[in-house]
Structures are given as structure tokens and as C-alpha cells.
Design a protein around this nucleic acid. Structure first.
Lengths: 195, 195
DNA sequence: TTCTTGATTGACTCGTCAGTCAATAATAAT
DNA sequence: ATTATTATTGACTGACGAGTCAATCAAGAA
């Protein structure tokens, strides 16, 4: 049998712990000791595997992004119609997983951090471009380029805006209404100039 | 002549310095010494006037909010038509002042901090309610309650979302296009069901 | 068994930073 | 001139946190 090192297990545990810690603290100002403690290891080990705090946090963000991408791939198939794929795209951004306390804080912090850290900024731009091209892929089939571009901007803004607003209200209406609002926007814009 | 104490001058200087510092660092993790240094005083004096860091930051946020409110009052008059007032409301949120580097970071951090600090959360809810009621005041004249409510949600989300997106891209299209996008949304929604 | 390599940590160093305090200067009041 | 008040700071404390390191421990390889 292939021998397994501890490394992948510990890395994953530390990343998960980081998300949990960020959720509790509400921001990126978590301590390496706290994260390591949650993962059941010493802070020295966290440094051993990740080098420094920044890289651990970067890995955490990357993990969040790939998870989002996986969720999307799981819901979107080539056989779907453009409008259906857009619906799926909207849905993943408002799934349960995206509203886990740690995830919310992490994304917010991520946005903030992007102003300083070049690495974070790069990650964010990857995410942003991916969302944009996902949206455009289907929108371009339904509307002329320029208009599709504008609708794409609007949807991306609505996703960000509604996500934040929903995230900050522990109470407040269901995510359903946020999703409905985006669909409403999308349908209205798509209908324009038609029939 | 009325004798002026140093207190108001120093308070203002410290608050301005805090905004500048937040702009440079990109987040709320600024040091009191840094802020005080920019204001030309010792960190001890900052503590003297504000008690502690949290209260200084709260005052900074409050200052940002009242400034926004003042800008709004300066642009909105009772004689304006509802649609005009809505335009003014949108405009203030995308004014030059709101895009000063410190201001952007401060608002972002503010949103993040609201998850932890009760005081910050309270301030944010004040801001949020104020925006909502400002929007509803005019929207209610143009559409039935329920629909006005939904449009208000959409605009608020678009403001937040576009603000963030614009803020994080040093490049990217002008604010003009963001404002235009919101107007487009507003007009489309208002036109719905009409002749 | 002995050697090598990966896993893991306790203890420590070095910085930094919030907040305190006693002391000093300046200004106004009596 | 004396006293009270306000303004202001240097120096200090206490805490905390990132990152290092030498030393164990475990387990397979030689």
C-alpha cells in the first residue's frame, strides 16, 4: 500500500481550522496558535507546513475558491440551457455552504485584504474573472455583446451586494428572496427589447 | 472672544488622521501611535481624548457617516421630484469623497467589524436604515409599497456591490458607468407595468 | 541494530502595541 | 503671585503573537 505522509491531512485540518477561527473572530486577525490549537497541533507545526501566517491564509482562501468552483461544476452540465446555467450559477453563490459563519467572514476579509496583499489581490482577480466569464458564456448567447456585458456587471454587483447584506443580518429574510431578486433582474433585462 | 479649547481641534485631527492611516494600511488594524503621529501628537494624547482605540475608531466611523449625511442634505431639496431625489441619493454614494482611499478601506473594514463590535453593528444598522428610509420615501410615491420595497432592496444591493467592485479595481471603468447601471435598473423597474 | 527521514513540540526570542502615569508646560482664574 | 485647569508627553508596563530552534519521537531502510 502507498505510504501516506501526514502533510496533506494536517494541511487540510489547518485550513479548516483557519476557516472556523476566522468565523469566530470575524476577521483575518486570527492567531496561528488559535488555528493550530483548533486543528489539534502546535503552532510550530503550522509554521512547519505553511512557512508563515500569510501563506496559510492564502491557502485558506484558495481552498474556499476551489470549493466554490467544485460546487459550480457539480451543478452545471453542458446539456443545460443558458438560462438554466445562469440560475445554477446564482444558486451556488447563495448555497448553505457559502453562508457558513467562517466562510462569510473569510470572504469579507479577503476582499479587504486584497487591497494590501498582492497574492490576495491576484486570487481575487482570478475569482472575479472566472465569475465574469461564466456569466458571459451564457449571456452572450441571449443578448448582444455590449448588453450582455452590462447585465453581467449588474448581476455580479447584485451577488456581491446581496451576499454582504444577507451575511451581516443574522436575522433578515431568507436567501430565497435575494436569489429571487437577482432572477427578477435577469429576466427583466433579458426580456427587454423582446416581443 | 470665546475661548477655544484644544479638544475639538485635536479630535478632528485625530479622526482625519485615522482615515488616512486606514487608507494606507487598508484595514482597521492601524496603531494608535501611527494615527497620533499623523495628527502630530503623541499616542498618549489620543488615549487622553478618546479613552481607547475602539472609541476612536467608532468616532471615525461616525464622522464618515455624518459626512455622507451632510453631503446628501446638500444635494437634496424638498422641491425636487422623487426621481430627482433618488438620483441625488445615488450620486452621493459615488461622489469623489466616497472614493478617497481611506474612506473606501474604512467602509469595508466597518462592514467587517460590524460582525464583532456591538457598537459598530449599531452604527451600521443606523446607516442601513437611513438609506432604506431615504429610498422608500421617494419610491413609495412611485410604486405600491411591496414593489417599492423590492426595488429599494435592489438598489441598496447594487450600491454596495458596485461600490466594492469599483473600490477594489484601481483600473476599471469610471464610476459613471456604475451610476448609469443603477439608473438603468431604477428606470426599468419603475417603467414596469406602466403604459 | 543503527541510520535516516519525517513529524512534532516546548521553550524561547524579538517585536509590537494598547494603555497608564507621573511629570512638565502653558494658560486662565483669583 | 498663587492656584487651578487644561494640554501634552516620555517613559514604562504587561500582554500577546509570529517565527525559530534544538530536541524528542516514530518508523521504515540499510
Amino acid at each position: 500500500m502507498p505510504k501516506v505522509g501526514m502533510e496533506p491531512i494536517r494541511r487540510k485540518a489547518l485550513i479548516d481550522a483557519a476557516i472556523a477561527a476566522i468565523g469566530d473572530r470575524g476577521a483575518l486577525d486570527v492567531t496561528v496558535s488559535d488555528i493550530a490549537g483548533r486543528a489539534g497541533v502546535s503552532s510550530a507545526l503550522a509554521h512547519h507546513y505553511f512557512g508563515n501566517k500569510e501563506r496559510l491564509l492564502e491557502a485558506t482562501m484558495r481552498s474556499l475558491m476551489t470549493e466554490l468552483a467544485q460546487d459550480l461544476r457539480a451543478r452545471v452540465t453542458p446539456s443545460m440551457k443558458p438560462r438554466e446555467r445562469l440560475a445554477a450559477l446564482i444558486a451556488v453563490n447563495f448555497s448553505d455552504k457559502q453562508f457558513a459563519p467562517g466562510t462569510v467572514s473569510a470572504w469579507l476579509s479577503f476582499y479587504l485584504e486584497a487591497q494590501r496583499s498582492a497574492a490576495m489581490r491576484h486570487l481575487l482577480s482570478v475569482y472575479s474573472r472566472r465569475l465574469h466569464s461564466n456569466l458571459m458564456f451564457d449571456l452572450a448567447k441571449l443578448k448582444p455583446r455590449a448588453e450582455a456585458e452590462r447585465i453581467s456587471e449588474g448581476i455580479a454587483a447584485l451577488i456581491d451586494g446581496l451576499y454582504i447584506r444577507r451575511a451581516l443580518k443574522q436575522s433578515g429574510p431568507e436567501r430565497t428572496s435575494a436569489v429571487a431578486l437577482i432572477h427578477d433582474y435577469l429576466d427583466t433585462m433579458l426580456a427587454r427589447g423582446q416581443a
